[in-house]
Deep mutational scan, measured.
Amino acid sequence: EFTQISGYVNAFGSQRGSVLTVKVENDEGWTLVEEDFDRADYGSDPEFVAEVSSYLKRNGGIKDLTKVL
Rank of each mutant, 00 (worst) to 15 (best):
E1V: 11
E1W: 11
E1G: 13
E1S: 13
F2N: 04
F2V: 04
T3C: 15
T3I: 11
T3D: 05
T3P: 06
Q4L: 15
Q4H: 08
I5A: 04
I5E: 04
I5S: 04
I5P: 04
I5H: 05
S6T: 10
G7K: 04
G7I: 06
G7F: 05
G7S: 05
Y8T: 06
Y8K: 06
Y8R: 06
Y8M: 05
Y8A: 05
Y8V: 05
V9I: 12
V9R: 09
V9P: 03
N10E: 01
N10Y: 07
A11C: 14
A11S: 03
F12K: 06
F12W: 12
F12H: 03
G13Q: 13
G13W: 15
G13H: 08
G13N: 03
S14Y: 13
S14N: 07
S14L: 14
S14M: 14
Q15Y: 15
Q15W: 15
R16T: 07
R16N: 08
R16S: 06
S18T: 12
S18W: 07
S18N: 07
S18F: 06
V19T: 05
L20A: 00
L20R: 00
T21E: 01
T21H: 11
T21W: 05
V22R: 01
V22G: 00
V22I: 10
K23R: 15
K23T: 08
K23H: 07
V24C: 05
V24H: 01
V24A: 01
V24R: 00
E25K: 15
E25T: 15
E25M: 15
N26P: 01
N26L: 08
E28Q: 12
E28K: 12
G29L: 04
G29N: 04
G29P: 03
G29D: 03
G29T: 02
T31R: 05
L32K: 05
L32D: 03
L32I: 12
L32H: 06
V33D: 05
V33I: 09
V33C: 15
V33G: 08
V33A: 14
E34V: 13
E34P: 02
E34N: 05
E34R: 10
E34C: 15
E34W: 12
E35Q: 15
E35W: 13
E35S: 10
E35V: 13
D36I: 11
D36E: 12
D36R: 13
F37S: 01
F37Y: 01
F37P: 01
D38E: 02
D38C: 06
D38M: 02
D38Q: 02
D38H: 03
D38A: 02
R39H: 04
R39Q: 03
A40M: 09
D41A: 10
D41S: 09
Y42C: 04
G43Q: 10
G43A: 13
G43H: 10
G43L: 09
S44N: 06
S44W: 02
S44V: 02
D45G: 07
D45M: 09
P46T: 14
E47Q: 07
F48P: 00
F48A: 01
A50P: 00
A50H: 09
E51K: 09
E51M: 12
E51I: 13
E51D: 11
V52K: 01
V52H: 01
V52L: 09
S53T: 14
S53A: 13
S54G: 10
S54A: 14
S54C: 14
Y55N: 02
Y55V: 01
Y55S: 02
Y55C: 06
Y55E: 02
L56K: 00
K57D: 15
K57H: 11
R58F: 07
R58L: 10
G60P: 01
G60I: 02
G61K: 03
G61W: 05
G61Y: 05
G61E: 01
G61M: 06
G61Q: 03
G61S: 05
I62T: 05
I62M: 07
I62W: 04
I62V: 08
D64K: 08
D64C: 15
D64M: 09
T66I: 09
T66N: 13
T66W: 11
T66P: 07
T66Y: 11
K67F: 15
K67P: 14
V68E: 14
V68T: 11
V68R: 09
V68G: 12
V68A: 10
L69H: 13
